[in-house]
Design a protein around this nucleic acid. Structure first.
Lengths: 335, 335
DNA sequence: AACGTTTCTGAAAACGATTGCAGAAAGGAC
DNA sequence: GTCCTTTCTGCAATCGTTTTCAGAAACGTT
């Protein structure tokens, strides 16, 4: 059974294909009467335009890619959901891709964009380095980075972004611990040299310590991979170091850390204070509730979508830095 | 700047377009030498085949849709991730769509499939009713339901599925509570008449009670919407009813319930035992750790992907019911 | 009634791939 | 060298749209 095409519609309606096409695309220059008749026949025959043909002729698609970098966290899933909603309600198709590992990220993204003939691309997470500018130019479509760390010096004309100030937010968090008397503060970080979100947060940790005249001790820093399990393990290592507080760069790891602490017979926050990052809903439902730095996930998805739609029309890159919110829960206390 | 196409390649290589096409599609009947030359030129000119043209000519795409029904939970995000990985590594493109609300679900899915010219469709969540069979036939592509409740009597030839036995799993959980001496068991359910996952679990609850000669009391059932916040609220209502245990049909709601219990000065499990459903990672990291019925989320995504790939080749529908695992944590105790 | 405008319409040429078919080139048998 | 296979190759039609361009139809003006 052949599917109906524009030609069939034209024949039945007794008009030319171009007229049908004009109706489909809501172009002017079609008599109201003709338009109505064509629309009715389209309805009757259950006609659905063939997107492949359309895209071929238009030499572009309506596909927007979401390229997810790194571990897929609860954090990302909220962003993706709000992104998809806003894009698809603007008649775009959303193609999803998870990139594993941190290597060749941008090459993989370009491959993805070219192959799928994307007209726009959203990066979720990861980092953008100065020496990757060239790739960005190669990719001649609007690109927006969400929750990505942008290295200094990258040409802001080449892309858009929706980010938070990781350094500032983390600095604020660690300072809070310091102000509350903590001096032996452990850190649960992530990534090995290539995870810049982790790096920015780490720098903030080091600088905050230094500003309080606390010597940085690398034994107090342990690495994870954003999972609860890794937070648990990292915390176990820190337990030997007699820390009084620990800063985990993700709520998931903070939760793992809390579990490790309790499992070893210690109490949060009496024995060890815990500070997370992300402000996930679930942190608020822990007992005790997690002190954390909250990122506006849904809002971030919305903004990324809005901006992408705008630059798809106007081509003027935008950069916005969203505010984080320091939420004091019950996992931190004065000593 | 025009993008290079198959014709350019042919011209440079000094062969016909059909030869290039044959090389691209790895067809036989091309001399090894010619093939090598063509491949080299493809490489040199950075040629990427135009998918729209391909799809048009082939009269089908390589797009597979993931249609997510209902609230996007942590649960779904794990399934989606493993699904995407397996599909894209088999050269399919994954299109994501979230359907809001429970109305017109299947119509929306058909629209989605036709418009994007999908060659396969994965439903995530929701339910499939007998009277929707017709729609299924209309949709002439392989369809697989994952974590969907299938109404009795639906023709199994029309689709594939990867599910768990919600009734059995919930029955086992509630029975455990009963065997531990609980008689006033509250339930935190969800959905209003249209959420069949919730319904199946509810039926199990009622039947288990009845099998232990406990009269069903509708005041002990409260509704939520799979969020932690809704679990919290639902639990508050149940607190007046002096329940000794509560069964929440999702871990997220169970976590909300635990918070409500603690916030009201009671303890889990001493005062109230809590049983969840899903077996999310985070439940294991709660203190006390959540007793729950574990679903194999990643495995479910894998299986759904595998099966879809198979039926894309062979057209023989498959139905598998995955095993759940009852995980006893620290939130339940004997009374 | 002839003409110029304006409004609307359809034929036909793309877009970039795949594929059936005819036929060229190469190899083998005599 | 001729003829028959076998192996390779290229032409041209086709998929279902969009869009240009020429021209038909409708209308008002004189």
């Amino acid at each position: 059974m052949k599917t109906v095409n524009i030609k069939d519609i034209a024949k039945v309606a007794g008009v030319g294909v171009s007229t049908v096409s004009r109706v489909l695309n809501n172009q002017p220059d079609v008599k109201e009467e003709t338009k109505k008749r064509v629309l009715q026949i389209i309805e009757e025959l259950n006609y659905v335009p063939n997107n492949s043909a359309r895209n071929l002729k238009r030499t572009k698609t309506n596909h927007i890619g979401i390229f997810v970098i790194g571990d897929f966290s609860t954090f990302f899933s909220e962003v993706i959901e709000s992104l998809e909603k806003i894009l698809s309600s603007n008649r775009y198709s959303v193609m999803l891709h998870f990139h594993q590992g941190m290597k060749n990220t941008i090459e993989a993204a370009i491959q993805f964009a070219l192959e799928k003939k994307l007209v726009g691309l959203v990066f979720l997470g990861g980092h953008l380095k100065k020496n990757e500018e060239g790739y960005l130019k190669q990719l001649k479509i609007p690109v927006i980075f969400a929750s990505t760390v942008i290295e200094e010096g990258v040409d802001f004309e080449l892309f858009s972004s929706v980010t938070i100030d990781n350094y500032k937010a983390a600095y604020e968090g660690v300072t809070y611990l310091l102000e509350n008397g903590h001096r032996r503060i452990g850190m649960i970080s992530a990534g090995y040299g290539d995870d810049s979100v982790a790096e920015a947060r780490f720098m903030a940790y080091r600088d905050a310590l230094s500003d309080f005249k606390v010597t940085y001790d690398e034994k107090l820093v342990s690495g994870g991979n954003y999972t609860m399990a890794s937070g648990y393990k990292a915390m176990e290592e820190l337990l030997d170091e007699k820390v009084t507080a620990v800063f985990a760069i993700a709520d998931t790891m903070a939760i793992g850390a809390m579990k490790a602490i309790t499992d070893h017979g210690l109490k949060v926050p009496e024995d060890i204070s815990v500070l997370g990052f992300d402000g996930l809903e679930l942190g608020k439902y822990m007992t005790p509730s997690l002190t954390s730095i909250e990122q506006p996930t849904r809002y971030m998805g919305d903004q990324a979508g809005q901006i992408l739609l705008e630059i798809l029309r106007e081509e003027v890159p935008q950069h916005i830095v969203l505010e984080t919110k320091f939420v004091i829960g019950q996992t931190t206390q004065k000593i």
